[in-house]
């Protein structure tokens, strides 16, 4: 089934105004209001004409810099200064958060893309892990790396990072912490790098390479 026809069925179920269709992108997609996403997922999975029985991918996105149509310029993410130290910036990102769902039906052999967009200060989307079990880990990853809360998720813990890690690295205004659990994360300036051959370690005694007598 074509994406437009799938979208028409979806709108028929959800009611006018709760979803929009964008077909002029490389891949057509439907924007659904966040509150209805679990409902939309259940309908797409269970309707005999659609039968989207597999969630291929779920991605959390920090849309800072890009508007609803994907237009705009992203601001540069924080990197490292020439000295190998993480850049220190007080910039606070303002853009929305988004989640993209890529669905596939093994019986009908068609694909569909859903997107959800929420305000940055809300940063919460209902979970779809009750619809497709695979969403559980994907949502944990999105919470871990982007910091989107999934309401009613049965086990929303960090997926890849350590439990006591601070911040969400894929946010556009993420600033690398100076240390974690006593481990320094700040890089050393290149000039003080002990591994460069022309800069011997400060505590090494001079003339160390001459063999000791006796």
């Amino acid at each position: 089934m074509e994406p437009k026809a799938i979208f028409d069925l979806l709108v028929e179920h959800l009611g006018e105004g709760s979803a929009e269709f964008r077909e002029h992108d490389i891949e057509p997609w439907a924007c659904v209001s966040a509150a209805r996403i679990a409902d939309a997922g259940t309908f797409l999975r269970d309707d005999p004409r659609l039968e989207f029985n597999q969630l291929m991918c779920l991605s959390g996105i920090d849309w800072d810099g890009l508007d609803e149509n994907g237009k705009g310029k992203s601001t540069a993410i924080l990197g490292y200064t020439g000295d190998g130290v993480p850049e220190d910036s007080d910039r606070i990102a303002e853009g929305d958060f988004g989640v993209a769902y890529h669905l596939y039906s093994h019986t009908q052999r068609h694909k569909f893309t859903l997107r959800v967009r929420v305000k940055r200060d809300v940063a919460a989307v209902p979970t779809v892990s009750g619809v497709w079990s695979t969403a559980s880990w994907h949502e944990r990853e999105a919470w871990d790396l982007v910091g989107i809360r999934f309401a009613d998720h049965p086990d929303l813990r960090r997926m890849l990072l350590s439990e006591d890690w601070e911040g969400h690295p894929l946010r556009k205004d993420y600033r690398m912490p100076d240390q974690w659990s006593g481990v320094p994360l700040k890089g050393q300036p290149y000039s003080e790098n002990p591994f460069t051959p022309d800069a011997p370690a400060a505590d090494a005694p001079a003339g160390d390479d001459t063999p000791a007598e006796g």
Partner: peptide, 21 residues
């Protein structure tokens, strides 16, 4: 298995977001 890439581009030299499935 199925290796997926979801790339969002903003027209610049670097991707805006690259999600690896």
């Amino acid at each position: 298995g199925e290796m997926g890439h979801y790339i969002i581009a903003d027209g610049g030299a670097k991707p805006f977001r690259n999600k690896v499935r």
